[in-house]
C-alpha cells in the first residue's frame, strides 16, 4: 500500500509547519504522504535550519529534494514545503499571508497562545483555505471567515441545546 501512495507526487504544497522561535512545533499539516520517520526527520532538520537564518535573508531555502518557503510572523515561523517547478514560491508566501490574515481577523490580533488554546480552530481555518494536496480551496478571506463563523454559531447552538436539555 505504501508504494502507490508514494507515486502521487504532484502535490503543490507538501506540508505546513508552525514553529515557535524556541523551536516548539505548534501545528503541522502534511499534504504529501510521508512516513512518520520522514516527518520527524523533516521537523528535526528544518526547524533549526530556518531558525538560524537571519531576518534579511530570502524566504526560500532548498532542502532535500524540494524547496521550503517560510515566513516569520512575530514569534511564529510558518514553514511550507513546496514542489520545485510546480508552484510559484512567492505565491506560497501569499498563501501563508492569507492564512495569517484570516486568523488575525478571526481571533482579533492573533498570537501564539490563540493557536495553542484553539488548535482545532487553527486547523479548521487552514482546512478552509488549503485542502487535499495543498491546493487552495478559497482565496477570499471574507468567505473563509463566514464559514468558520457559521460553524461557531452551530457549536454555540449545540452548547445551548445541552444546557437546555
Amino acid at each position: 500500500m505504501e508504494k502507490p501512495l508514494r507515486d502521487i507526487q504532484m502535490t503543490h504544497i507538501k506540508y505546513l509547519i508552525l514553529a515557535s522561535r524556541q523551536g516548539k512545533v505548534r501545528l503541522t499539516k502534511w499534504f504529501s504522504p510521508y512516513s512518520p520517520k520522514e516527518k520527524q526527520k523533516i521537523v528535526k532538520e528544518l526547524t533549526p535550519m530556518i531558525l538560524a537564518r537571519k531576518a534579511k535573508m530570502c524566504n526560500i531555502v532548498e532542502y532535500s529534494d524540494h524547496k521550503v518557503v517560510y515566513r516569520r510572523y512575530a514569534s511564529l515561523y510558518f514553514i511550507c514545503g513546496v514542489m520545485p517547478d510546480v508552484d510559484n514560491e512567492l505565491l506560497t508566501l501569499e498563501i501563508i499571508h492569507r492564512y495569517v490574515e484570516t486568523m488575525d481577523s478571526y481571533f482579533g490580533n492573533v498570537c501564539e497562545l490563540d493557536i495553542i488554546f484553539n488548535f482545532s480552530k487553527a486547523y479548521d481555518i487552514l482546512n478552509e483555505i488549503l485542502m487535499c494536496d495543498g491546493s487552495m480551496a478559497e482565496s477570499s478571506k471574507a468567505d473563509v471567515l463566514k464559514h468558520v463563523m457559521t460553524m461557531d454559531s452551530m457549536e454555540g447552538n449545540d452548547n445551548l441545546d445541552r444546557v437546555l436539555s
Binding site: 488575525d104 481577523s105 482579533g108 490580533n109 488554546f117 480552530k121 457549536e155 452548547n159
Partner: peptide, 25 residues
C-alpha cells in the same frame, strides 16, 4: 501579532461559546 497591516477587525468574533472549559484548563 502577525500582521501589523491588519487591525483586529472584529473583537466580538472571538466566540467563547465554542470553547470547552475542561480542555482550556
Amino acid at each position: 501579532m502577525m500582521d501589523s497591516r491588519k487591525p483586529a477587525s472584529n473583537g466580538s468574533s472571538h466566540n467563547y461559546s465554542t470553547t470547552i472549559k475542561g480542555l482550556q484548563l
